[in-house]
Design a protein around this nucleic acid. Structure first.
Length: 561
DNA sequence: GGTCGGGGCGCG
DNA sequence: AAAGCGCGCCCCGACC
């Protein structure tokens, strides 16, 4: 393709003043190269993500969703195999390199530019038809647009990177684990873990026990007169034995060392930035997943290492009690929405549970997750009596799941249909006298819990995705902090990635981080609030439910809340 | 030598 | 107290 393609793209963006939607095979494949060339685009239709949503809706989520596959299906030809996810020779825990020429789908398939263009046009037209044929075309169209915008935001966050102070991270590790083992001893336990392992072995009779091995631990504990069903934290926590305190400390520290220790730092932090690769729509509910780096599981203790650049700040914003609010809006439960009108939803509901905020929280979580053990049953009964509409909503979703049906999020993302194995287990025997498989009830209830949670989690993901898209758009429209940048506001900025403008650097289900010049922090806070309100309207229409975000302007992520 | 499922635990 | 939902990734140990 033309070497000046990024220039041409930027030119179109500029002349269209942002009122332009690129249609392309995949943002994840195409956008990183544009960003590296300094080009930012405003909007796109992402064929691969749209195809994934459409296939999921039609109960065909297992089929490949690439442009080539969609085009082949359109022509009645057999779809090509899914592209390999990882290039050969790529080790785990290493950042990936983006490959492939711009706009040229990688791997096997279409290589002739005219054929690519023809395929894009044909598949796009077909997708628009299939969207229009949806039960709720406007909502499903909004979902496709938000998912596409999400792909842009994801690529931009990877490109910008999360500010990460390797020296602070190293200091935290040394403080907790002892000094970093020299390179020659890489892979061995640091001092503190070695000490703890020795203490554990000594307390268990003196023979060496590998605390990383649940099997060895259970045996050694049994020999010491302690019988445990597992070596999970909360099981061991109840045990009174001298080996337990060092063991619990070992487990906590060894996890940090293994998952986010020095090896992680070497592999994932470069030039003061952590650049995880997000997988948009990687979770069935529409939440994002990440590939490598454990980006969505960063231990809270390491937030200390996330520090804004000099003169810059982090705006940390997270949606307060998003999922119960989503349930209130989904179900249209007026009583619930009114009880939750205040800032803290659980506090607002506490009066229903004898003034106990924790009980309110437990009742809501049980309703959304399907828990019913212990106290939860009683609390659920209270919830059902006081908020029958909201309770009925999740009960209906659970019943659908138990019966093998599918459910959808508010914008229309579909949950996967049950597997063939599930159908086989739960199928009623034709013979009335025959014993029903004892696993049938268990499998049925498990799917009920899944669909019960899906309607809430997936609708919350819809809202968060729309929020992210709105915030990305609003951030790009903010005037700059100084006169130099003011001169660049408007059309001349369109189509350009501006490293001095506020940008999203992290997104974790219901939380966003924006890195911005200090002088722009208040404007960003306002943009966050406006985006949240916009998302509420766009996803749920007219509703009394509010979706407040708690925002903090900080120099360090750890100082937010 | 490699793969794969389970146990365990980090995040929401 | 955690569980009940969704993930990714570590280590171990069984297996090829």
């Amino acid at each position: 393709m033309a070497s000046d393609l990024p220039e041409a793209v930027a030119g179109y963006e500029r002349s269209a003043g942002g009122d332009l939607r690129w249609v392309w095979s995949s943002g994840a494949e195409n956008y990183p190269a544009l960003l590296r060339a300094g080009v930012r685009i405003a909007r796109c239709h992402d064929i691969a993500l749209a195809e994934r949503l459409l296939l999921g809706r039609d109960g065909r989520g297992g089929e490949p969703a690439s442009l080539e596959a969609a085009h082949a299906r359109l022509r009645g030809a057999p779809p090509p195999p899914e592209r390999a996810q990882a290039a050969p020779g790529e080790g785990p825990g290493r950042p990936r390199e983006q490959q492939g020429a711009l706009f040229e789908p990688a791997g096997t398939g279409i290589t002739d530019p005219r054929a690519v263009l023809e395929a894009v046009i044909a598949v796009h037209a077909d997708q628009l038809r299939r969207i229009a044929a949806d039960e709720h075309p406007a909502r499903f169209g909004a979902l496709v647009a938000a998912e596409s915008a999400g792909a842009l935001a994801a690529a931009e966050m990877t490109f910008a990177g999360m500010p990460w102070r390797a020296d602070v991270h190293d200091g935290l590790l040394s403080e907790m684990l002892g000094p970093r083992p020299p390179a020659a001893l890489a892979g061995t336990r640091p001092a503190r873990l070695t000490e703890l392992a020795a203490q554990i072995s000594a307390a268990l009779g003196g023979r060496p026990v590998n605390p990383d091995s649940p099997t060895q631990l259970v045996k050694a504990l049994a020999a010491a007169g302690v019988r445990v069903s597992s070596t999970r934290f909360w099981v061991l926590h109840e045990v009174d034995h001298p080996a337990i305190p060092p063991l619990l400390e070992y487990k906590e520290l060894s996890r940090l060392h293994a998952a986010h220790g020095w090896a992680w730092l070497d592999a994932w932090v470069r030039d003061g930035r952590f650049r995880p690769e997000y997988v948009v729509g990687g979770v069935v509910s529409g939440r994002w997943a990440s590939r490598g780096g454990g980006a969505l599981q960063i231990p809270r203790v390491l937030r200390r290492a996330v520090v804004a650049d000099p003169g810059w700040v982090l705006v940390v914003a997270d949606a307060a009690q998003l999922e119960p609010r989503v349930l209130a809006a989904l179900a249209g439960d007026r009583a619930f929405a009114e009880a939750a009108a205040g800032g803290d939803l659980y506090e607002g509901l506490a009066s229903v549970f004898g003034g106990d905020r924790n009980k309110a929280k437990k009742a809501l979580l049980s309703a959304m997750y399907g828990g019913a053990g212990g106290e939860a049953g009683q609390l659920l009964a209270v919830l059902r009596r006081r908020f029958p509409v909201a309770s009925g909503y999740v009960e209906t979703a659970a019943r659908a799941g138990e019966e093998g049906r599918v459910v959808r999020s508010v914008l229309g993302r579909a949950c996967p249909p049950p597997s063939a194995a599930w159908r086989a287990v739960t199928e009623e025997s034709g013979d009335e006298e025959a014993e029903r498989d004892p696993g049938a009830g268990r499998a049925s209830r498990a799917r009920g819990r899944f669909t019960r949670n899906f309607v809430v989690q997936a609708s919350a993901a819809d809202w968060a995705l729309v929020l992210l898209a709105a915030l990305r758009r609003r951030l790009a429209a903010l005037p700059g902090p100084g006169s130099a940048r003011d001169a660049g506001v408007g059309p001349t900025r369109a189509g350009r990635w501006d490293p001095l403008a506020p940008h999203l650097v992290f997104f974790q289900h219901d939380e966003v981080l924006v890195h911005c010049p200090e002088a722009m922090a208040q404007a960003v806070v306002t943009a966050v609030a406006e985006s949240a309100a916009e998302a509420g309207r766009a996803v749920f229409g007219v509703t009394p439910v509010r979706f407040p975000m708690t925002t903090a302007v900080v120099g360090c992520y750890a100082d937010a809340k």
